[in-house]
Simulated assay, not measured.
Amino acid sequence: MIPSKESFSADRLLVVAAAMVDADGRVLVQRRPEGKPMAGLWEFPGGKVEPGETPESALVRELAEELGIETWDSCLAPAAFASEPLGGRHLILLLYVCRKWRGIPQPLHCPELRWVRPIDLHGLEMPPADRPLIGLLEALL
Results as ranks from 00 to 15, higher is better:
G88C: 04
G88H: 10
C98H: 00
V16Y: 02
E66K: 15
P3T: 09
P105E: 09
L59N: 03
L141M: 12
L93Q: 01
P3M: 08
K5M: 10
A58R: 02
Q106S: 13
K100W: 10
P107W: 02
S9L: 13
D24F: 07
P118C: 06
T54C: 07
P3N: 07
E138K: 05
M38Q: 13
L93C: 03
D120N: 13
G123D: 11
R114Q: 14
L91M: 13
R99K: 15
G46E: 01
W42Q: 04
R102H: 13
L113C: 12
K36F: 14
A80N: 06
D73I: 08
I2E: 10
A77V: 13
I104D: 11
R117L: 15
V116N: 02
A58S: 14
E34S: 15
G25Y: 08
P107F: 05
E66Y: 00
E43G: 04
R131F: 05
L141A: 05
A17M: 11
L108V: 12
I104N: 09
R114K: 15
R32T: 11
H109Q: 14
T71Q: 01
D120S: 15
K5H: 11
L141T: 04
S4K: 10
E125I: 08
E34K: 14
G87P: 04
T54F: 08
A129N: 08
V27D: 00
L93M: 05
L93A: 01
A39I: 05
L63Y: 04
L76H: 02
A80Y: 05
G35I: 10
P55T: 09
V49F: 03
F44W: 12
D73G: 07
F8I: 11
L67P: 01
S83G: 09
E34R: 15
A19K: 03
I134S: 01
K48A: 12
D120V: 05
P78S: 10
A58H: 01
L14W: 07
L14T: 07
E112V: 02
C110M: 10
E70V: 13
S9Q: 14
L28D: 00
C75F: 12
I2W: 06
L140M: 14
W101R: 02
I69N: 00
G40C: 09
V97D: 01
G40P: 03
A18Q: 03
K5S: 13
M20F: 02
L59D: 04
P111R: 03
G135R: 13
G46L: 07
H90E: 13
L14Y: 07
E62T: 02
L133P: 02
M1G: 14
R89V: 07
D130I: 11
Y96L: 03
L59G: 04
I92W: 01
S57H: 07
A17G: 14
D11H: 12
E138V: 12
P3K: 06
F81E: 08
A79L: 15
I134R: 01
A17D: 02
R61D: 11
K100S: 15
P85K: 06
E43C: 08
L59H: 08
